[in-house]
């Protein structure tokens, strides 16, 4: 779990070019971290690549925060 959180944070910081301390589990990608719809698609692709999983489109729509991503990925890996 801790490992997943760190890896997710690293990807978010890198892809969205945001400060690491803003990437907390409660942070939402669009409101808090300034991502747009295309950023989100790219972010999900990066998660898929990093964790070698597939995140279906209907699940993507429910991943709105860092915590949502960590939760979904932890269940899969």
């Amino acid at each position: 779990m801790a490992d997943v959180i760190e890896r997710v944070k690293k990807i978010v910081v890198e892809r969205l070019e945001v400060e690491a301390d803003k990437v907390v589990e409660a942070a939402t990608f669009q409101e808090d971290l300034g991502a747009d719809s295309l950023d989100l698609v790219e972010l999900v692709m990066a998660f898929e690549e990093e964790f070698a999983i597939e995140i279906p489109d209907e699940v993507q729509e429910q991943i709105n925060s860092v915590g949502d991503a960590v939760k979904f990925i932890t269940e899969r890996v």
Binding site: L38, V41, E42, M45, E48, E54
Partner: peptide, 10 residues
Amino acid sequence: PRKISPFFIP
């Protein structure tokens, strides 16, 4: 196709 970047076209 799932690996195509959303930024490819723009």
